[in-house]
Amino acid sequence: MHASARRSELVLLVFLAVVFAVSSTVVVGSVVHIERAGLVVDGLNDGAVLTAAAVPDISVTAGDDSVLDRVEVLVDNATIATRRDGNRVTLENFSPAEGGHTFLARVRSATPLVLDAKVEHEFTVTRCG
């Protein structure tokens, strides 16, 4: 009976070690992906109040230019057309209605279980500044 209890403890210990190793790899991979992407939204801060004329100045840059072709931009959960312009991504023909909006720029991870890199801002569009 004593040997059976030791074997059960050993199996549990090995199982926990494997779970720890896998979860550590996922967390480190997520952090590396997010840091590598380094998304920055230019022309828009969280809580900003903008006129419609200022919206075309919004762009997205990244710490790693190679991810710019994979940047997705959503406003209020709707995908916005973008264009790569050198080392940034700009919005194409986008003019939001007056009121509050949520801007999300993200790069989806190509690796399963690794978090997407993303930056999100709330903003308001007004008629006049």
Rank of each mutant, 00 (worst) to 15 (best):
T25W: 15
V26Q: 06
V28I: 01
V28R: 11
S30G: 11
V31H: 08
V31R: 09
H33D: 13
E35D: 14
A37W: 09
L39S: 04
L39Y: 07
L39Q: 09
V40W: 14
V40A: 15
V41W: 01
D42I: 03
G43V: 03
N45R: 12
G47N: 13
G47Y: 08
A48E: 06
A48R: 02
V49S: 12
T51V: 02
T51N: 14
A52S: 15
P56T: 01
P56V: 00
P56S: 08
I58H: 08
S59M: 07
V60I: 12
D64G: 03
D64T: 07
D64M: 01
D65P: 08
S66Y: 12
S66Q: 14
V67I: 08
V67D: 06
L68Q: 00
L68E: 05
L68I: 00
E72G: 13
V73Y: 09
V73T: 06
V75N: 03
D76E: 02
A78N: 05
I80S: 05
A81N: 11
A81W: 13
T82W: 00
R84L: 15
G86C: 10
G86F: 09
N87C: 08
N87I: 00
R88P: 03
R88V: 05
V89A: 10
T90W: 01
T90Y: 06
L91I: 03
L91G: 01
E92Y: 09
N93W: 11
F94Q: 09
F94M: 01
S95V: 09
P96M: 09
A97E: 13
A97N: 10
E98Q: 09
E98K: 05
G100V: 07
G100H: 13
H101K: 06
L104E: 06
A105K: 07
A105F: 05
R106G: 01
V107R: 07
V107D: 09
R108L: 13
S109W: 11
A110Q: 14
T111A: 13
P112T: 09
L113Q: 04
V114M: 03
L115M: 12
D116T: 00
D116G: 04
D116R: 06
A117L: 06
A117G: 04
A117M: 10
A117D: 06
K118C: 13
K118M: 14
